[in-house]
Design a protein around this nucleic acid. Structure first.
Lengths: 144, 144
DNA sequence: AATATATACTTGACTTAGTCAAGTATTAAC
DNA sequence: GTTAATACTTGACTAAGTCAAGTATATATT
């Protein structure tokens, strides 16, 4: 479709714009001792019941060896517990320790503050609309 | 503000979602001989009149030495021309050669195709709404 | 005009992030 | 009871990114 070209261009513009937004919000992570990948992994472990390396890789797409070592590091820091599954001992069940949860939530709180900041100067009306549109975009792009 | 907490959470959800979208769209770059950083630099050189390393750094936030070497590489490949500014010879004016433009546009075309694909299955109405909402979000978050 | 300071970029030495492939432990299939 | 498959680990490596000292040119100070 010809006229889609304009739409595509606009989407590209938005993508570039939003990449920067996300970049700004993630900045604080770069100033922390963690990489974005680290945080995404913590996120998955926090939110996934009976989390395993395999399950993480279904979501994140990361080299298996690399992942293994990142988990190692977190186990070393006592952020993550790793124990062989009773059902199938090849699987290592991953979970956050209390220390890991605290640290993860601290990072999250910081992110929240930055987002809060980002919408602080807006009228309540704009704030609500912004989020409504984000939800619509997500819905439109998910239904496929 | 208390009730903002819900909004912030929803924005975080959107950010995570859209990070994935962008990740999917950028996938093909990872399969090419260029990094995301490479492409962003080409983009800046393509779109910036009398582009210099300094100007690029105003947009991208990248180590100066690293940038210098990336430019080196592109100069070596004959994608980029680099010549001392006549006005101030400390500045090196950067521009894409024809070869560089061709290569850059090829990458862009690929991106466009992926975006096209992404919205291909949508009703025209949704496609238009999607882009309208993207533009609104950009406007809301830019006006500050 | 000579010297000091600032700016724009380059180079060398290094660290961190990420990849590839072989290896180990455990389970499933025949 | 072998063979094959799976879940993860380890070793050896490449690529990406950083830090700091160095070079070239321009501006400010005296």
């Amino acid at each position: 479709m010809k006229k889609d070209k304009i739409l595509v261009g606009k989407i590209r513009t938005f993508n570039r714009f939003y990449t920067n937004i996300i970049g700004l919000l993630d900045q604080h992570i770069l100033d922390s001792p963690y990489t974005l990948t680290d945080v995404r992994i913590l996120y998955e472990i926090y939110h996934t019941k009976n989390c395993t390396a395999k399950k993480i890789r279904e979501v994140i797409s990361i080299d298996l060896g690399y992942l293994s070592r990142i988990i190692d590091r977190f186990v070393g820091k006592k952020f993550v517990r790793r124990s062989s599954s009773a059902v199938d001992r090849r699987f290592k069940i991953l979970s956050l320790t209390q220390k890991g949860k605290t640290e993860f939530l601290k990072l999250n709180n910081h992110s929240d503050k930055l987002i809060s900041n980002m919408i602080a100067g807006l009228y309540q009306k704009d704030r609500n609309e912004l989020v409504k549109m984000m939800e619509s975009i997500k819905t439109i792009l998910s239904d496929k």
